[in-house]
């Protein structure tokens, strides 16, 4: 699966140092259409730095990031977004003083470059499209509620609908299930997996919840001290002794295959220490 002739995303030689410390060193990988690729590793391994370079937030020191053959390095996050790369965040970021529908409408309005319209009411712009997206993530019934009063799990669904508004080819999801209850996580990832397969969207996600990673990813990459140290199917990565040593440990604190119940909680507010 790794070796495809025409990958959606091709990353070559990506590197970044901060003050002489290699945060990300010579990272190479491909991402195929409709594939869910998990990026795991200890805190400070460089996952966030990697993400920030992929969507243009941070300029890499070296390397290239190609989206369907088009170089993204040197673009701003907004340009990258316009090319069809969506990003979701660890901690939900929605417009609390707007309704669920308006949140999605804002993304659609931006997608259609109408943000400076001065006269027609916001609520009249792309209302049907917004409702259709909300329907897909199961939030249509709550479309008129304020985001500020929603439950956390529902906010995550709203964010998914927002991320779909610009018809992305690639979604970068930073710990998509952080801060959620175990069953909600599984539901959200099942929903995400369903949508990305039907629309053939590729997903790169980081995750601390190993149950989510092993249940929903097609492939897993392990980052340690800025370097890719393992890559392969979930089962292969899980059995890798090096990965066990640096990250997974003896497995006493996350669920085994038979018992996917309670799990390690995810990195909701890891403090600002990512390298």
């Amino acid at each position: 699966m790794t070796n495809v002739s025409n990958p959606v995303l091709a990353v070559r030689g990506l590197s970044k140092s901060f003050g002489g410390v290699h945060a990300v060193a010579d990272v190479n990988f491909f991402l195929d259409a409709g594939e869910l690729l998990a990026l795991i590793g200890p805190n400070g391994a460089g996952k966030t730095t990697c993400f920030n370079m992929l969507n243009g937030q941070l300029p890499p020191d070296a390397g290239s990031v190609k989206l369907q053959g088009r170089e993204l390095v040197g673009m701003t996050p907004r340009q990258v977004w316009r090319l069809g790369v969506g990003r979701t965040f660890q901690i939900t970021a929605t417009f609390a003083s707007m309704t669920v529908r308006e949140n999605v409408q804002m993304a659609l309005i931006s997608h259609h470059k109408r943000i400076r319209a001065l006269w027609r009411r916001t609520g009249d712009h792309y209302a049907d499209e917004a409702l259709a997206l909300l329907d897909r993530v199961g939030m249509a019934e709550q479309a008129e509620r304020a985001c500020g009063v929603l439950a956390y799990g529902d906010l995550k669904r709203v964010e998914l609908a927002v991320a779909l508004a610009n018809e992305p080819q690639l979604l970068l999801m930073d710990e998509p299930t952080a801060g959620m209850a175990p069953q909600e996580r599984i539901d959200l990832m099942a929903l995400t997996a369903g949508i990305v397969r039907e629309r053939s969207i590729s997903v790169l996600f980081t995750e601390h919840d190993m149950d989510v990673v092993f249940a929903h990813s097609d492939r897993v990459m392990v980052l340690n001290r800025g370097e890719l140290v393992a890559e392969g199917s979930p089962a292969a990565v899980r059995a890798d002794p090096l990965v066990q040593e640096i990250y997974l440990g003896a497995g006493s604190t996350f669920g085994s295959d038979e018992q996917p119940a309670a799990t390690t909680t995810a990195d909701a507010a890891a403090g600002g220490t990512h390298a």
């Binding site: 417009f95 707007m98 804002m106 309005i109 931006s110 943000i115 319209a117 001065l118 009411r121 916001t122």
Partner: peptide
């Protein structure tokens, strides 16, 4: 109430 103001609020 138009997108301009909503973007500002956003």
């Amino acid at each position: 109430f138009a997108p301009f103001g909503y973007t500002l609020r956003a």
